[in-house]
């Protein structure tokens, strides 16, 4: 039983923080701590690692942004160049209205979901690399 937790009747005494005491654990955690400290101390290695990670994330974000912008940016120009698209109908609704009024919302969600997966896997790679 853990007595430090206290019963419901006890006064709410400030609990001491639990500390983990480990003797001579010479495996991975030491290097993890070392790399994290190194990151924080901004050694030249750490600076380079962080910079390249930021660049990876930036590239991913820019790719998605440019893709989205091209996708949506092409629409007004297409409608301008091919006005006859308005005469095309699906189930009684004209094509531009489907492309502008309905389609963008699921498309935006899918792009967002996809980016989320990419960004999180980039982060996982970075953590794995640091904690190796």
């Amino acid at each position: 039983m853990n007595t430090a937790a206290g019963g419901p009747g006890d006064p709410p005494a400030p609990r001491p923080r639990r500390k983990k005491v480990v003797l001579a654990d010479s495996r991975a955690p030491v290097t993890v701590l070392r790399t994290v400290v190194e990151l924080e101390e901004q050694t030249s290695w750490a600076e380079e690692v962080v910079r390249s990670f930021i660049r990876t994330q930036f590239r991913a974000a820019v790719k998605f942004a440019v893709g989205t912008l091209l996708l949506f940016g092409a629409l007004p120009l297409t409608f301008y160049v091919f006005p006859e698209l308005s005469d095309v109908e699906f189930a009684g609704v004209s094509l531009p209205w489907l492309l502008l009024g309905v389609a963008p919302f699921p498309v935006l969600f899918i792009i967002g979901y996809w980016y989320n997966v990419v960004a999180e896997s980039n982060e996982r790679d970075f953590v794995d690399m640091v904690e190796k």
């Binding site: 994290v36 962080v50 930021i54 982060e123 970075f126 953590v127």
Partner: peptide, 14 residues
């Protein structure tokens, strides 16, 4: 550099 590290480092590194 420190601020950039804080902004971009994955949350798990704390």
């Amino acid at each position: 550099n420190r601020i950039r590290l804080r902004m971009h480092a994955p949350d798990r590194l704390g």
